[in-house]
Computed example of a mutant assay.
Amino acid sequence: MSGIERVVTSGTFELDGGSWEVDNNIWIVGDESEVIVIDAAHDAKAIEDAVGNRHVVAVVCTHGHNDHITVAPQLSADLDAPVLLNPADDMLWRMTHGDKQFRTIEDGQVLKADGIELHAIATPGHSPGSTCLYAPALGAVFSGDTLFQGGPGATGRSFSDFPTILGSIKDKLGKLPADTVVYTGHGDTTRIGDELVNYDDWVARGS
């Protein structure tokens, strides 16, 4: 049976000289034999314990902020799985991991675990390479820090832009079915329709 599992880890988000304590959601998508891990935050052991003996197709990082890639190289080595990241976030990756390598994930790319397709959707704004993963068969989208319960992800730091994230949400995520469940990078889940009804308020807030 295919499903979605959540692991929550705790650590720090660091950018522009600041440091903030955060809890991150790591999503494991697949079945009892094969999975995809979404994000690589803080604690490799907790993620590896949740994966168990299952084959990991890939560790996909929704974007390059350090709290989403903290243990990506370790997971890659321990789980014998490639790390995928949109190359537009290369500069963020290098802030944390220097010249360690990742593989690229591009807009429209499709990954499969247990026959479940995850479609990569480029959603720049929170970061240049922010990428959501849409699973039509599960009625789910994994939004990283692009969309939360309550609105768009933060855009007040380097390499982010509020009009760009609004465009990504409206033009990309807004095309998904309204009842699509949004599995976020932090905090609780929501639904596309429950958030998009507030789009005009977000625009007004940023003007």
Rank of each mutant, 00 (worst) to 15 (best):
P82N: 08
I28S: 07
V110M: 07
V51S: 07
A44Q: 06
A122C: 09
G108N: 11
Y199I: 11
V7F: 09
V71Y: 03
F148L: 06
L92W: 01
S207F: 08
T190D: 07
E21N: 10
G153D: 03
P73Q: 08
T131A: 07
K170I: 04
C61I: 05
G52Q: 01
G11E: 01
A77G: 10
N66D: 14
G187C: 12
I169Q: 13
V203E: 15
L173I: 14
L176R: 02
D188H: 10
G185L: 02
A122Q: 12
F159S: 08
G153M: 04
V141Y: 06
G3A: 12
R205T: 14
A41G: 13
W93M: 06
N198V: 02
L75V: 01
H186D: 07
D171N: 14
E34Q: 09
H63A: 01
I121G: 00
E34S: 07
L196N: 05
H42P: 02
A72P: 12
M91Y: 01
H65N: 09
D114Q: 11
D43C: 05
L133M: 13
V60T: 09
H65I: 05
T70S: 14
F159T: 12
A77N: 12
G156L: 13
H63I: 04
A137L: 12
D200L: 09
V83N: 06
V110S: 03
K172M: 14
G187W: 13
C132S: 11
S19T: 14
A41N: 03
G115K: 12
A154T: 10
L15D: 03
S130N: 11
D201T: 03
